[in-house]
Design a protein around this nucleic acid. Structure first.
Length: 575
RNA sequence: CGCGAGGUAGAGCAGCUCGGAAGCUCGCCGGGCUCAUAACCCGGAGGUCACAGGUUCAAAUCCUGUCCUCGCAACCA
């Protein structure tokens, strides 16, 4: 059953530039997207993987001010650092860009113009709080004042922490700007709203068609919106940092970040391959789009962005909105202020094995519910799975081939096919069927299960060695028997390198060239189908093995705990 | 009746969509092997699948109710 090559576009949620990512973002967006993209390339599909940073919005504007930089300079600095971290983690973006580009501005303005032209916008007058000093509109979380109910003086714009009551921004007494603490003033302004209510029927149809594709929690979270009914949503803001709204009377307004950010997926695609690629990936119904996001982003990717796309009528909607849950850390939430977590800026100077880290993270991906990172788990996964099962199998196989046969077995499948016993047949069955089963799991974005199956695959190899005991065969003079066993093991080793390559790309590439002595890379285009073939040539010579992964002891773990727990503080950028 | 997630062997978890003899990793006990990074393989002990009802020939899995735990200001995916 040969599958046709698929066109696939993978996106990972744009990261807000106001800080550097912690493991949560890696585990929910970058890494699953990367594993998925790598698998599909290896499978032979035509994949591109894009992401970047979301540069606009109030917080980054204020942060830039705080460190004495222009917004452009600040976001560029942050974008560069974030990109370095992605590279360190071996996230294989075809393009990692940002939203502060000409291409993005054009794409966003054009996107808006289409919605406008299609009649899906309305104008509304509303009052807002404005800070004359910082020249920005103050959203609920950037303003405080006196609670109209209990008189608490540090109440937020829409809710009081002391009495818990919620209210309208209008009711807050003597409001002040959270940034400069000066009085905020009330202003009346016009804003543009997108008529989500008009789009709801069409959107709902799309969502329903995804019932069996999306993860259950994504589907149910999305459907909750329909029960209450979608309402027009404001997409403009009164701040000086963002993309200008291209309408008369709106010269001083910009688009709300959540309007333009997802359009970034399109503009970054355009940056990568021009209009032609946009056409090929966003306007071609044969291209499937996968959005990898954290659960906090589900609403934006399953409701707002698709609604906008439907109103714009120019681009295709996603095939799958892959919403991940959250990662906790040693039983607690990640927290910068409490220094709970692993903060990726620390990875840059750490000697932690990125592949081992990736493998552990995949094993605990919060696919269906929140999960927990523990150093104990990391240590266990590295020592028991990667060293003991996976790496050990390569080591055993290659060692015996080298020690006893000078690295070359001088046989192939034709030489052994008439002398197969039950154990051999089980081994052959595993090599022929498991790569496809594992691939199926990857393509269904069930990464944790795929990883588990890969480790089970390695265990089958170890058990086979145990049952056949080639070291005894050699001792007893059954050289052909030993060669047969090792030939099958070598073919399994090849398969194991390929199927694990989406998760541990560096180590598998290393063993591929340096130890197995093959050409190319195990994660090369179209390599997947080679995994299930038992076809290594007679004269193939392997090299001496070398341990793939290093064991972790408590001392090293303790050092990582110290090294990796420091959140990045933007104040260090201060001039 | 705020919202959401969860309660499965000592620990951590999978299985629940599409009911059909309780599974994985670690730990523990016993055995085997010595090719391998004190790695590997086999066997065993250990669970009334939170509780109570219901549907069914059959329920961890579906339905109803109850109890308990965790998250829901900000930094933060």
């Amino acid at each position: 059953m040969e599958n046709k090559k698929e066109k696939i576009l993978v996106t990972s949620a744009l990261l807000y530039v106001n800080g550097l990512p912690h493991l949560g973002h890696v585990v929910g967006c970058w890494l699953p997207g990367d594993v998925f993209a790598r698998y599909n390339r290896t499978k032979g599909n035509d994949v591109i993987y894009v992401s970047g940073t979301d540069d606009y919005g109030t917080a980054s504007f204020i942060s830039a001010k705080e460190v004495g930089m222009k917004p452009e300079e600040f976001i560029h600095t942050m974008n560069t650092k974030i990109k370095e971290i992605a590279e360190k983690l071996c996230i294989s973006f075809d393009k990692f860009s940002e939203t502060n580009t000409e291409t993005h501005k054009e794409t966003t303005v054009d996107f808006f113009n289409e919605i406008y032209k299609n009649g899906y916008t309305v104008e509304k007058e509303s009052t807002m709080l404005y800070c004359e000093h910082d020249k920005i509109a103050l959203a609920d979380r950037f303003v405080y004042g006196t609670c109209p109910y209990c008189g608490y003086e540090k109440a937020y714009g829409d809710q009081c922490d002391q009495c818990g009551k919620t209210y309208e921004l209008d009711d807050l007494k003597s409001p002040k700007c959270s940034f400069c603490e000066k009085d905020a003033v009330k202003k009346s302004t016009k804003h543009i709203y997108v008529s989500l209510d008009k789009i709801q029927p069409e959107l709902q149809k799309w969502v329903e068609s995804k019932k069996d594709v999306w993860r259950p929690h994504v589907y149910s979270m999305t459907n909750k919106w329909f029960k209450e009914g979608l309402k027009p949503r404001c997409i403009t803001r009164d701040i000086p940092w963002g993309i200008q709204v291209p309408l008369k009377d709106y010269q001083d307004k910009v688009f709300y970040v959540w309007f333009d950010a997802p359009i970034g997926y399109i503009s970054i695609t355009k940056e990568l391959g021009g209009d032609e690629m946009v056409k090929d990936r966003w306007q071609n119904k044969d291209c499937k789009i996968y959005n990898f996001i954290g659960k906090d982003n589900i609403d934006f990717h399953a409701i707002f962005f698709p609604s906008m796309e439907l109103a714009c009528k120019k681009y295709n909607l996603a095939e799958n909105v892959v919403g991940f849950n959250f990662l906790n850390f040693e039983g607690q939430k990640f927290s910068k202020s409490k220094k709970v977590g692993i903060f990726c800026n620390n990875l840059m100077n750490s000697d932690i094995d990125i592949d081992a880290l990736r493998a552990y993270l995949v094993s605990i991906f919060p696919e269906n519910k929140d999960s927990d990172f523990t150093y104990e788990g990391f240590k266990l996964n590295t020592n028991a799975e990667l060293v003991g099962k996976y790496g050990n199998f390569f080591n055993r196989t290659l060692n015996m081939i080298n020690k006893n046969f000078g690295g070359a077995l001088e046989i192939d499948y034709d030489d052994i096919k008439n002398s197969l016993d039950e154990n051999d047949n089980e081994m052959i069955e595993a090599i022929k069927t498991l790569p496809d089963q594992i691939g199926e799991l990857f393509s269904k974005t069930e990464f944790r299960m795929a990883y588990k199956e890969i480790m089970r695959f390695a265990s089958i190899g170890n058990t086979y060695l145990e049952k056949t005991a080639p070291w005894s065969l050699i001792k007893n003079g059954d050289i052909n028997g030993a060669k047969k066993v090792l030939y099958l093991c070598l073919n399994m080793a090849k398969a194991l390198a390929i199927v694990a390559s989406p998760i541990i790309p560096n180590r598998t590439a290393e063993i591929w060239t340096e130890q197995l002595n093959f050409e190319g890379r195990p994660d090369g285009q179209d390599m997947w189908e080679k995994a299930s073939k038992i076809n290594i040539s007679k004269s193939h010579k392997v090299n001496l093995p070398k341990p793939l992964f290093a064991r972790l002891d408590d001392e090293i773990i303790e050092r990582y705990k110290q090294e990796l727990s420091h959140p990045f503080d933007i104040k260090t950028l201060k001039k």
